[in-house]
Write a protein that binds this DNA or RNA. Sequence first.
DNA 1: GATGAATGAGTCTTCATTCAT
DNA 2: AATGAATGAAGACTCATTCAT
Lengths: 185, 185, 185, 185
Amino acid sequence: MSRGNTRQRIQDVALELFAEHGYEKTSLREIAERLDVTKAALYYHFKTKEDIVISLFSDLGRPVDELIAWAEEQPPTLETKREILRRYHAALAGARPLFRFMHENQATVRDLSIGETFKERMTTLAGMVQDPDASMADRVRCVSALFTLHAGLWVMQAVDGDQEEKSRAVLEVAEDLMSRAHHGE
Amino acid sequence: MSRGNTRQRIQDVALELFAEHGYEKTSLREIAERLDVTKAALYYHFKTKEDIVISLFSDLGRPVDELIAWAEEQPPTLETKREILRRYHAALAGARPLFRFMHENQATVRDLSIGETFKERMTTLAGMVQDPDASMADRVRCVSALFTLHAGLWVMQAVDGDQEEKSRAVLEVAEDLMSRAHHGE
Amino acid sequence: MSRGNTRQRIQDVALELFAEHGYEKTSLREIAERLDVTKAALYYHFKTKEDIVISLFSDLGRPVDELIAWAEEQPPTLETKREILRRYHAALAGARPLFRFMHENQATVRDLSIGETFKERMTTLAGMVQDPDASMADRVRCVSALFTLHAGLWVMQAVDGDQEEKSRAVLEVAEDLMSRAHHGE
Amino acid sequence: MSRGNTRQRIQDVALELFAEHGYEKTSLREIAERLDVTKAALYYHFKTKEDIVISLFSDLGRPVDELIAWAEEQPPTLETKREILRRYHAALAGARPLFRFMHENQATVRDLSIGETFKERMTTLAGMVQDPDASMADRVRCVSALFTLHAGLWVMQAVDGDQEEKSRAVLEVAEDLMSRAHHGE
DNA sequence: GATGAATGAGTCTTCATTCAT
DNA sequence: AATGAATGAAGACTCATTCAT
């Protein structure tokens, strides 16, 4: 049945379990059992448990890196920032379980080797949408816009309604927040 | 030698470590060593590791319960909702490490016995600030206002400036978001 | 409420729990909780956990010692042996939980300091009812008579009927076994 | 180095220690040390400590199950009952340490998951050798016959003589007891 | 006559990891 | 590409025991 896809299947199952129960509470035994292979098999594909997380992060986190690279070459206009929001929104949608995992396991992620990278990326992104000369409130608005997207899952489970519709509303609110932070422009 | 404050000291150290490294990565040995007592001493004061978290939650989480109780008796006006934001903002400020722990260890908290309670409280609060007849975007605004406060720590570490000033700005943005969701009123 | 009788109450509860769950599985915490005192209180009355068993054994096991002392001065006739059975039967009835405990926890008792004494006593008793010149089968009969009494509880729970009636029947069978071992007399 | 016999070796050592010192007083550390493996190795072969006992019980207790199955299809004549005694005698001889363990650790066994099964089997067997219409004394005789075998070890250590000869005598006494319970037939 | 607080040694158990096959 | 067998380190937890008050 399965041929070269075992590595992929490990990633899938691992991400699912990590997101559901957290990294530390998910044991390699559990992952192996779900896949009906032995723990040792996991070690054929990944050097360590942490390696699995790293692989998830670099496979699924790439779009965010690309977004940052793109943004760094744009002028820091309101329109650019709105586009950042739109792209970030899309990136999140494409790797929801990974971002859920990261959002809900920050304490863990911080202690992992990817922690640093992760934090840097978020800081970079936050820096890009802020205007250093704006008022404190406006700077908070910009970061909050970003964060609203990032916490979309959370926000959305607290509101009733169609999934798609909520997702659009979240983006709308974020963009609006961003615009209000630039009322002068 | 030691007075009746050991229980309190355990809670303090535990909360600090839980918030810093997460619940699972913090061992009772670590807590005991910091306090210079034996692991068994912890068990004199708390039945299980989970019990420590539960005690933190019920000691420090009380203000939020009181807030909910109060809010349930108010009319659902804009002013009430703004007051909810102010009070929630104050409650968070009073137990920042606990909320940081909960925010950053959601996957863990979910698997703990307090998880249910915690989720209920957040859902109740989210329900109270929303107007069921409002547009989807406005409902998202309300929840996002709450969440902005809740994630204050996160937001604030991404913005430079004086701690106090940022804290006020966060509340201001939240209140403003809430107001915008009630433009008709 | 309780005055000088705490020691007695400890013994009662301890014996009950030891008989039900065994010596090692019964913790001092359990005993203390049942009595609604602290573990430390137990240590006021008994030096160690083993001391509790020892006290039970010397308080309740005395009748058997007396029986042995008495028997040692009698001629080894069939009638003496039947009287031993009757007296042993009575001694068992008077301290059923203790004998149940000893019977069902032999491995434990063996490792306790009383173990030696206990075994000696049983061996002495077994020696007294046997006739060294009898056939092997008859010697087994004598020991089996003793043992049938000793295992009365066990035997009796495998047979339906009135408690008292069964108890008498057990003694009858034991006496009959003993008589058959002495057919010549 | 080691072949597939580790599981078996664990069972052997465990049974020996359980029989000698009891289940609770035998630690996995002790078992592991005797085998010169780590405790974790035990867990590769058995899920829990209790699992070791369960495995012993189902490996070595099978003959008794077979005996019961066989007996259920026989007419309840005296001859059948004597054959039950003979077969039970043989079954016990084949797994003496296990039965010694069970006999001497009844309180423990009762609290283990196998306890129920064990008790059921003994009750079934006791039910099969009794004649419900017989006198109470005769019913006790039947059960006592069974029990005499079961306690053979105990009986035999209280009697001097050759092991084999005693074993035969025990069976003889048991058969005789059974016969006496059926004098009319 | 008893408690509150604590300890040290030990329990069972789980985990990530290794390696010969 | 994967397994069977095992390890070392660590985990949470329990226990009998002590002692100042």
